[in-house]
Amino acid sequence: MTAESTAQARTGYRERQLVVLDVNGTEHEVLVEPRRTLVDVLRHDLGLTGTHVGCEHGICGACTVLVDGRPARACLMFAAQAEGSAVRTVESLAGPDGELSDLQEAFTRHHALQCGFCTPGFLMLAEGHLAACPRTDKAEIREVVAANLCRCTGYQTIVEAIDDCARQRRNREED
């Protein structure tokens, strides 16, 4: 066995599969190795670089996206595992003309981001939580926010921004 074929046998390199993904309501076909992660496909095959990679082991949450509406670590999923699901990334939040969503507005109003690297993950985490638990409160938001890491803000303004957004959504609902 040559070194090359050994390596091929070891890694399965070059073996690719066609994966069909529904991302932000658009269908994409990508030909990828089975081991390729969802976040790498989003970022490097589809060019959706808003989703970030902070640790590649599922702790920091910078890569959080919504899979069928629920927050998921895109670094811990193979792209193939997302077939048949609806994936939403940070690029889906703003309006078509770039108008910020109410959640994004709350983040900028509260200075809930500094370097902005973790921000897409927090936005998607919050988007998923607020959709599932519209009557959430600040203590619960703090627990949810604890799923992800931020090194700049100390978290307080992230919690406040999400809480503010939740209150405004509830107020609009009551109006």
């Binding site: 970022r43 690029e91 921000t119």
Partner: peptide, 23 residues
């Protein structure tokens, strides 16, 4: 004055450009 940060719109919409975004 605590004006709105000018960095925010691109960072909030996933349109920031970090080094790993260069291809």
């Amino acid at each position: 004055a605590s004006v709105r940060r000018r960095e925010d719109p691109r960072l909030l919409t996933g349109r920031g450009r970090f080094v790993d975004d260069l291809h």
